[in-house]
Computed example of a mutant assay.
Amino acid sequence: MDVIEAISKRRSCRKFKDEPIPDEKVTALLEVARLAPSGGNIQPWRFVVVKSEETRNQLAQATPMPFVPKAPVVFVCCVDSQVFSPDTVGTRFHELKEAGAFLGTPLEEMRPEDYAKRRNSDPIAARAYLGLNAAIAIDHITLRAVELGLGTCWVMMFDQEKLKNILNIEERYHVIALLPVGIPQDVPGPRPRIPIKDVLLKEI
């Protein structure tokens, strides 16, 4: 299956077969998330993989979506606020520099400690930036899932604090989405999409 086929076949799946997902497939999904790109290579995504029936049932206390706990696996997708610490930002920058990522750019001559000072200190903008980067990793998961014969569904209706309490997630992490994963019970048809002429603002 090529990328365009995976994109075309991806659907939001809300009904799953009562069949377990092999560990190797769960690992395959985590691996494509790990390979996702991120700004400054900060790699902020972190995941809690919920497999046990007991814990999945507890998730019902934190989301109004009844299909979430019925999926055999639920990825609780988080971001780590500590990736913005000066040491971590500097380390990631140094790694990119050593890999030759900045050749031919002004960043080639910049020191890691100076790069780390450039970060936007606005907490709202920082949270949005982390979420944007993590969304790339989550989308990698949704597309790889299609290739593996699995269905997923982005769920953003949940109670942050209840989730953290149920899963014992530290304060430094922020949950941005729930991603139930399983074998689709049926294959939904394509959803309506606006035409390219409405997507393209202009060509200049």
Rank of each mutant, 00 (worst) to 15 (best):
204 I>V: 12
51 K>V: 00
64 P>M: 01
26 V>T: 10
143 L>Y: 13
132 L>H: 12
53 E>A: 13
64 P>G: 09
204 I>N: 06
6 A>M: 09
8 S>F: 10
158 F>W: 01
44 P>R: 10
17 K>T: 03
33 A>N: 14
28 A>R: 11
85 S>I: 00
155 V>D: 14
169 I>K: 12
39 G>R: 07
29 L>A: 06
13 C>M: 08
66 P>C: 00
135 A>N: 15
80 D>M: 14
130 L>R: 10
189 G>R: 09
14 R>V: 00
177 A>Q: 15
150 L>N: 04
192 P>N: 08
84 F>N: 13
144 R>Q: 15
132 L>M: 13
101 A>F: 13
34 R>W: 11
154 W>E: 01
159 D>K: 02
103 L>M: 13
167 L>W: 03
40 G>D: 06
185 Q>K: 08
191 R>Y: 05
75 F>D: 12
18 D>F: 04
32 V>M: 09
44 P>W: 07
22 P>F: 03
19 E>Y: 03
6 A>S: 15
144 R>L: 07
64 P>Q: 05
42 I>D: 06
111 R>S: 12
172 R>A: 15
178 L>N: 13
117 K>G: 06
168 N>Y: 05
106 P>D: 05
75 F>G: 15
99 A>V: 02
27 T>V: 08
46 R>Y: 08
115 Y>V: 04
19 E>Q: 11
97 K>R: 08
171 E>V: 13
95 E>Q: 11
20 P>I: 00
170 E>V: 12
89 V>D: 02
27 T>L: 06
144 R>P: 02
119 R>A: 10
127 R>G: 13
105 T>F: 08
113 E>D: 12
165 N>P: 03
105 T>W: 06
31 E>N: 14
188 P>A: 05
98 E>S: 08
59 L>H: 10
115 Y>G: 06
57 N>M: 09
123 P>K: 09
157 M>H: 13
21 I>A: 06
123 P>L: 05
52 S>V: 00
96 L>H: 06
90 G>Y: 01
134 A>M: 01
176 I>A: 00
114 D>A: 09
165 N>D: 13
98 E>L: 13
42 I>Q: 09
117 K>A: 12
84 F>G: 05
162 K>A: 13
64 P>F: 03
171 E>Y: 11
61 Q>R: 14
204 I>A: 07
176 I>F: 14
116 A>S: 08
160 Q>D: 04
69 P>R: 04
57 N>A: 15
104 G>W: 07
17 K>H: 02
159 D>G: 00
66 P>I: 00
111 R>Q: 11
194 I>T: 11
112 P>V: 02
65 M>N: 15
32 V>Y: 10
11 R>T: 02
68 V>C: 02
170 E>Q: 13
173 Y>Q: 15
131 G>Q: 02
66 P>V: 01
158 F>M: 00
